[in-house]
Amino acid sequence: MPEEDKSSSRKAFILELLSGLGKIEGRTKLQKIVFLGQMELGLPEFFKFDKYHYGPYSWDLTETIEDLIATGYIKEEKEHCGDFVTYVYKLSDFAQSEIKLPSEYIPGDKIETLKKLSELPRSAIIEYVYRKYLPERLNA
């Protein structure tokens, strides 16, 4: 797939994901949801993941999110929780009007599974991913 098409598909995938979930609280949780969607739900493998500080991490995913924020499709909001900042990702009003239904990349039953996953505490998701996937499934 040409790089331009891949980038476009990645962006459409993330927009569908946020459309279905409403929001994702936290950068780490966003990374793990996409990782588990690819590994366990058979979603398109648009993003390559490598071992990083909190488990699987995709530089491509971070770049895609940053592009979508810069172009106004995604809103990144900071929530202060004591000494910590959590980044919350949502579709912008503009993006909500642009989303094409039905989903091209994420079937409805898979969105429901991802929604349940997104409601879990970040620590539970990280623990599950570490237990099941590290280090053998990721590049060292």
Results as ranks from 00 to 15, higher is better:
Tyr52Phe: 06
Lys32Gln: 13
Asp83Val: 04
Tyr52His: 08
Tyr52Met: 00
Ser103Asp: 02
Lys100Phe: 02
Glu45Tyr: 03
Ala12Glu: 15
Lys51Asn: 12
Arg27Ala: 00
Glu16Leu: 01
Leu61Arg: 14
Phe46Asp: 14
Leu138Thr: 12
Val85Asp: 15
Lys90Asp: 10
Leu43Gln: 08
Asp5Val: 13
Val88His: 08
Asp109Cys: 00
Thr62Trp: 13
Glu112Thr: 00
Leu41Met: 11
Glu4Tyr: 09
Tyr130Glu: 15
Pro44Arg: 00
Ile14Phe: 06
Thr62Val: 11
Thr62Arg: 08
Leu43Asn: 11
Ile74Tyr: 10
Leu15Cys: 02
His53Pro: 04
Gly37Gln: 05
Thr86Gly: 07
Thr71Val: 05
Arg137Ile: 00
Glu66Asp: 14
Glu3Ser: 05
Gly72Pro: 11
Gly108Ala: 01
Thr86Gln: 11
Lys116Thr: 09
Glu104Ser: 04
Ser7Thr: 12
Leu134Val: 14
Ile126Gly: 09
Glu3Pro: 04
Leu138Glu: 14
Asp5Trp: 08
Glu66Leu: 05
Thr62Ile: 10
Arg122Gln: 10
Pro44Thr: 03
Phe49Tyr: 13
Leu91Pro: 02
Arg10Asp: 06
Glu98Arg: 02
Lys48Tyr: 12
Leu117Asp: 15
Pro121Gly: 01
Leu15Arg: 01
Lys29Pro: 10
